[in-house]
Design a binder for these strands. Sequence first.
DNA 1: ATATTATAGTTAACATGTTAAGTTAATTGC
DNA 2: GCAATTAACTTAACATGTTAACTATAATAT
Lengths: 154, 154
Amino acid sequence: MSQSKTKHEQLRLRSFDRSLPMSLLRAREAVMKKFIPSLQEHGLSTQQWRSIRALVQEDGLEISTLANRCHLLLPSMSRIIQNLEARDLIKRASVKADQRRNAIFLTDGGRELFKAIEPKSAERYEFITQQFGEDKLDQLYKLLQDLVISLEED
Amino acid sequence: MSQSKTKHEQLRLRSFDRSLPMSLLRAREAVMKKFIPSLQEHGLSTQQWRSIRALVQEDGLEISTLANRCHLLLPSMSRIIQNLEARDLIKRASVKADQRRNAIFLTDGGRELFKAIEPKSAERYEFITQQFGEDKLDQLYKLLQDLVISLEED
DNA sequence: ATATTATAGTTAACATGTTAAGTTAATTGC
DNA sequence: GCAATTAACTTAACATGTTAACTATAATAT
């Protein structure tokens, strides 16, 4: 932790730190660890929470749509749905016009859980914004989006 | 992909997109997917690759040290060591002065693999830098670091 | 010296990320 | 109208993230 470093070592470590995947991962972990303990109390992962939020905004979504909205891959969403369904937080109804499709709905329990968690979640987000600075946060979002775009265009 | 969206829908989606964990995850995935196919050819994850790079810079590190350098948790590093050891890319030697510790060394095969991958990896990193812009990349690194710091100080 | 505590590492258990393969139902093509 | 293809999931397999429990060794403390 507080071990002294030679100049040579500092340089080596700095160059090693310049890894985009790792920097992004560390930032994400820092956000998730410090600001989502209320989810943990209720046994929800951020992905599960995000799925529930998506359904609060629009109920009855299909699994693929939900996966897109939450930026999850279909297999991940498939497992999340099974998990939340087993905990009676959501229920599914097959779509009559297309038997392959499932519409996902929140149960009353799911809505209650949302109401229990949402205030704290919003409060924490507000705290991040204040702590880090609103402009810096905007800047970060923009840079991240730009990065994705510039990587996606070959 | 190109489905038209109502203004209301756009607003909802935008607000939903403002999730730091997800934005960070998406950016990381974009980086990893587009710029590390050479690792995949050799069956290496970015974490395994990072571990090898750390050992190239300094051989004989202990597992905990390696975990710190690579920003991985000890259990993850433990599994990675076992995996790379089974593939004869690294070997371990227990430290005489302290039987709990293991010093990790690259094998010749591990060094060869590094040499095979490194040029492409550096080239891709260079390409990211050009594509995205060096200043923006610097800015992004700085913001990410600031974010971690500001979250860690309670 | 021996009991307590701390450290290094492994294992376990569960959720997710990721790619590929499998299933069932709808669509297309001819 | 039937074969081939596509679409919506699901399942599988493997690596990682994460927390906790466990093992073995070392340090400490009285």
